[in-house]
Structures are given as structure tokens and as C-alpha cells.
Amino acid sequence: MKLIKMSLYILMLAIVMFACNSTDDSFKDQNEIFYTMPEEGDPHEGTWLQWPHQYQYGKTFRNRVESTWIDMTRELVSSEKVYIIAYNQTEKNRIVGLLNDEKIPLENIEFSIYKTDDFWVRDNGPIYVRDKNGKLVIQDWGFNGWGEKTDFEKCNAIPQKIGEQQNLPVINLNTIMINEGGSIEIDGKGTLMACRSSILNENRNPGMTQKQAEDIFTKYLGVTNFIWLDGQIGLEITDQHIDGFARFANNKVIITMNRNDLLDFDVKPLDINKLFKAKNERGEPYKFLKLPLTKNNVVTTYGEDLGYKGSYVNYYISNTKVLVPNYNDPNDSIANSKIQSLYPNRTVVGIDVRNVYKNGGMIHCITQQQPK
């Protein structure tokens, strides 16, 4: 009897020790860095674009916005590949015709034919990261149309298709987190900045805690320092993406606006205070470069007054150029000059986004980098 009791005691002790060790290992796994995301300004292999088409919103919509894609392509092909996603073969042929008419060389352009719901590739497209061996892989984060506000199934399938096309491993995170690319900003040195409203939201990740989100971001993006703003659920379709009003120039400088312009851009006072108190992973306060809003309300090329001003913060860094949203506004040149001061080795180019802005976004929203 004593022998049986002793055996049971040893068995129970072993189970407890195994459980403790398993819990410790699980905790370590949650907080271990498996992947790191290169900073946007690192050298690119190319830039992904989802070309506007007629199949979701009609020809008038397509015709009003696609000049922005033509202008971006013209600037990008000089220093990197441009990966264009066309809805079908007919659309590819039409796009080729447009580019030929504009005398844009096609040698540095690679087409893929995939059906898409929309053109916001920053939010639904592939996120390229490096594994522990420095090899490039694609992460396929969940995309649900900004909380099932629009059709999304076709766009959500894009990262997997690109991975198969490029013969790259695809890390499927669809069941781990809904996370649009425009929801997060990283400084390349361990810090992530985001609004809770577009991530810790019942229409994206119901029940997820901030700690759980941070563990996921640490594991899959390689960040350990977090700047969380509250944001605003219900403020435009994205529930207030961070990349509309605050971006990292590097691990020392944040690009944003002055307090009055941030208020005009519907950023809450408490979030403004948090932003201006932000510190990097070494505990150092960030410096700030403040861009203006447009001087006037944005008016589309077809004469519609949108009733609100435009942000210049939503720009895109390519290998040799910085594509900045412009609005045919007096403050275009001021914003372009300020941004140029941050990137002396690149050329700032203004891209007219007035008609795209009518639909809720700017340059950063419609581009996605593929690192070398």
C-alpha cells in the first residue's frame, strides 16, 4: 500500500512539474521574437499596387482614381520593380495600354492577375518579414474589410496567392489576428505605434487584450516597445488608422502635425498628449517633424468639395523617391519641402490624390513594399 501511495505521489509530482515547465515554455514562446519586419525605408525589391477596376464600383469610379496609379508607377519604375495586380486579362491589357500611352517603360513592371474587391493593398496585401535566418517570408494577417464594412474575401486571399507565385513561405495568421497594414507603424528598432480602435475592436479581434496583441506583435514583427493611442471606433471606415496622422521617419523622429491640425483631423486631445510624450525602445523621447494640413478643404478634380482638409503624413518611401500626397493646395509645397528635409538622399515627388482621398485614403494606403 505504501509503495502504491509513493508511486502515486511521484506520478502527481511529475505531472505538476511537467505542467509548470509547459506553462513556462508557452510563456517563453509567446514572448519570443520569431520574425522581424524591415522598416519601410530599407532597400526594396519592389512595390505592390492593386490597380483600380470597374467590377466593384463601376467605370466612373475607376476612371476618376486611376491617374494616381499611373503617376505612382511612372515614379517607381526608375529604381525598383512595380508589381501590379490586375483583376483579369482584359484589365491587364487595358493597363498596359494606359502605360504605353504615357510612355512609361514596362521592363520593370511585373503583372499578376488576381481578382480583388478594392485597391487598398497596404491593408490586405502581403507583409514581408525576415525569419531568424534573415530569409524573407510573407505573413498573411487576417483582413475582414475593416470590420466587415465592405466585401473583402477576394482581397484577403491576395497574400497567399503572392506567396505561391513567388515560392515564398506564407505564415497564415488569419486565425491569430485581424490586422491591416495601415493600423501599425514600426520604427525599425523595436517600437510599434497603433490605435487600439482599429485593432482591439469587437469587429476585428473580439475579446483580445492589449497584452495578447503585444505578444503577437512581438513574435511576428519583432517589436518590444509599444505606443498605444486610443483612436476612435466609428471614425471613418478604418476606425482611425495611425498612418493618417503619425508615422516614424526613423527611431528618433515621428512625423505628425501640430496640435490644432491634429484636432482638426479628429485626433482626441488625450491621444495628442500621449503621442507627444512617446519614447523609443531605449526610453528616449522622440523628436517631431510637424506637417501642415492642407490650407483649404480638398476639392476633387471633378469639382466635389469634400468638406475636410488633407493630410500629407500618409506618404510612401521608395528606393530613390518619396511619394507624397498632394491636393492642388498652397500647402503642398510646404509639406513637400519639410518631408524632403528628412530624406536628403531621395527625391520627394507630389502625387495628386484628391479623388483617392474622396474614398478614404492616400499614397501609403495604396502601396506595399517588398524588401530586397
Rank of each mutant, 00 (worst) to 15 (best):
K268R: 14
W146T: 06
A249G: 13
N205T: 06
M177F: 13
F226N: 12
E180A: 09
V223E: 12
A194L: 03
E236A: 13
E180P: 05
C155E: 12
G244V: 03
I184V: 09
F265R: 02
I242R: 03
W146D: 13
L229A: 08
L173H: 10
G182P: 11
P159N: 06
T209G: 01
T218E: 00
M177E: 09
I178W: 02
N174D: 10
L221F: 10
K161W: 01
D151I: 06
T209N: 05
A213F: 06
A194Q: 02
K154Q: 15
K252M: 14
V267A: 02
V223H: 05
G231R: 03
N179P: 03
D239T: 05
Q166L: 15
I255G: 12
P169V: 03
Q232P: 13
D215F: 12
I184F: 02
C195V: 09
I227L: 06
R259L: 14
E185M: 10
E153N: 12
H241P: 03
L270Q: 15
P206Y: 10
F248M: 05
G147I: 10
V170S: 03
F217Y: 14
I158V: 10
Q160M: 14
N172T: 02
D239E: 04
G234M: 04
P169R: 15
H241T: 13
K211V: 14
I186T: 04
L235F: 13
G222H: 05
F248S: 04
D239C: 07
Q212Y: 01
Q232L: 11
A157D: 13
Q165W: 11
D243V: 07
G182A: 04
L168S: 03
I186S: 08
D215E: 11
G182H: 11
W228I: 01
L168I: 04
G188Q: 00
I227H: 04
W228V: 04
D239H: 01
K252E: 11
G190I: 06
D215M: 15
I158S: 01
T191G: 06
G190E: 01
K154P: 15
N167V: 14
T256R: 00
I171Q: 05
E164P: 09
T224A: 00
G181T: 00
V253I: 09
M257P: 08
I176Y: 07
E148A: 13
K154E: 15
R259E: 15
G182N: 10
D230S: 10
G147R: 08
W228F: 01
V170T: 09
T175F: 12
K161N: 07
K268P: 06
T175Q: 14
G182F: 07
L263S: 03
N179Y: 14
N250E: 05
L173F: 07
G244P: 07
S183Q: 02
R259P: 05
I254V: 04
A157Y: 05
G190H: 00
L221W: 12
F217I: 01
E214L: 10
W228S: 08
I227C: 08
P269S: 09
